[in-house]
Amino acid sequence: MTPPTPNIRVQSDDFDLQTEIDALTAGRTDIGAVVSFVGLCRGEQNTLSALELEHYPGMAEAEMRRIAELAIKRFDLMGLTAVHRYGKIAPGENIVLVIAASPHRQAAFDGANFVMDFLKTSAPFWKKEHGKDGKARDWVAAKDADDSARDKWE
């Protein structure tokens, strides 16, 4: 069977979780499990006015696609959607979405988890914090914990 083509998007607009799940499962009766992950912008104790997401156009999509295809192959997924936003995102708003579909639940859980772990460490996106005082603060630092999370899949 030909592996499914992942639905990969990088966009400034928001996304709707239910719309994306419906698109992935429409007309299918072979999918038994759908796991979704949504990453949101935290307010950081009400000190943050926005996160500014910068990306490497072209490479961001390509890298997300590469990760998604690895996950489809490794977990025999029946469908995968990954959407990442860029631009200014306010606390409470969506940043990233991953949906994995499979016949049984474990592969869908693992697939979504795998995609997020690799996306955080190798998809070219960067976050800059903007404070409530209107000033740009600093770039968010990469975390060792994210590298460890990725390395557990090796």
Binding site: G39, L53, Y56, I95, A123, F125, W126, W139, A141
Partner: peptide, 10 residues
């Protein structure tokens, strides 16, 4: 050639 800091998306 792209040159950039460690990534912080997701």
């Amino acid at each position: 050639i792209g040159i950039f800091p460690p990534m912080t998306g997701g």
